[in-house]
């Protein structure tokens, strides 16, 4: 592969850093913080739940920027970046949704409820899944890249809605962790954050964001490699 030495070295260091951070956050979640008083052990899910959410959020923002940049510059690398980011973002938001459902079972006494927050997250997931459907449905590569960029910009409206809805809808039962909340009544599963909880939470979020960026890097390299293989195949077929 024709990657520069320093970049490959950086990627390797980032990989080690991700593994290290993951081990430390694992230790923090299970040993450093104690179980929460009103929720018990299941509260430990919450760190991964939020970490995965922030990772997917960062990835979808990256996809939005990649979409805008592709339309501006028409460089293929932005399309690769957008595709990679959305593919990974889908998995991270799936982790977010599933862990949320498992947390909700003992706390809200149901796996799923059509709460505004849950609804918008589900719709966000569907919007990005539709992005992959759109890519699969269009044959002309230039048009596929263009439409994908346009749709990744449109789909971001659902991410925006997910962030905003919890601030404007007073009837959500989902706890608001970061930022102002419209009301404190009616939120089930909220809890006071001790210093240790806050530290662990921030550390886990940081860890997941770093992991997602590392994986994104590998995923882009994979995309490049696949394209190179495709080109070589075409070459061989033409020569044959």
């Amino acid at each position: 592969m024709q990657y520069s030495e320093s970049r490959t070295r950086n990627l390797r260091w980032l990989t080690y850093a991700s593994i290290g951070l993951f081990i430390i956050s694992f230790w923090m979640i299970f040993a450093y913080v104690g179980p929460e008083r009103t929720q018990g052990e299941v509260q430990r899910i919450f760190y991964t739940h939020l970490g995965a959410f922030f990772a997917s959020f960062v990835l979808f923002v990256v996809a939005l920027i990649a979409g805008i940049q592709y339309l501006r510059t028409r460089h293929e690398k932005w399309d690769d970046l957008g595709l990679s980011a959305i593919e990974l973002g889908l998995i991270f938001s799936l982790i977010n949704i599933v862990t949320g459902a498992i947390w909700a079972r003992p706390i809200w006494n149901t796996w799923w409820t059509w709460d505004p927050r849950l609804t918008t997250v589900a719709i966000m997931w569907l919007a990005y899944a539709a992005y992959l459907m759109l890519r699969a449905g269009i044959e002309d590569p230039n048009r596929r890249r263009r439409f994908a960029a346009v749709y990744s910009i449109l789909a971001f409206s659902s991410v925006f809605l997910t962030i905003v809805i919890i601030r404007v809808r007073p009837d959500t039962i989902h706890p608001v962790v970061a930022g102002p909340t419209s009301t404190s009544e009616g939120i089930e599963g909220d809890f006071a954050m001790s210093d240790r909880i806050t530290t662990t939470l921030l550390f886990t979020i940081f860890t997941y964001v770093v992991i997602s960026i590392t994986l994104l890097w590998y995923r882009i390299r994979l995309e490049n490699r696949t394209k190179l293989i495709q080109a070589r195949k075409m070459k061989l077929l033409l020569n044959a």
Binding site: Q39, E41, R44, I45, T48, V98, P106
Partner: peptide, 20 residues
């Protein structure tokens, strides 16, 4: 403190399986 250990284990199994 309610006993919710099972759900915690289930949650982490699922999360790490997906990541894996």
């Amino acid at each position: 403190m309610p006993d919710t250990l099972d759900y915690m284990i289930l949650g982490y199994i699922v999360a790490f399986t997906l990541l894996g």
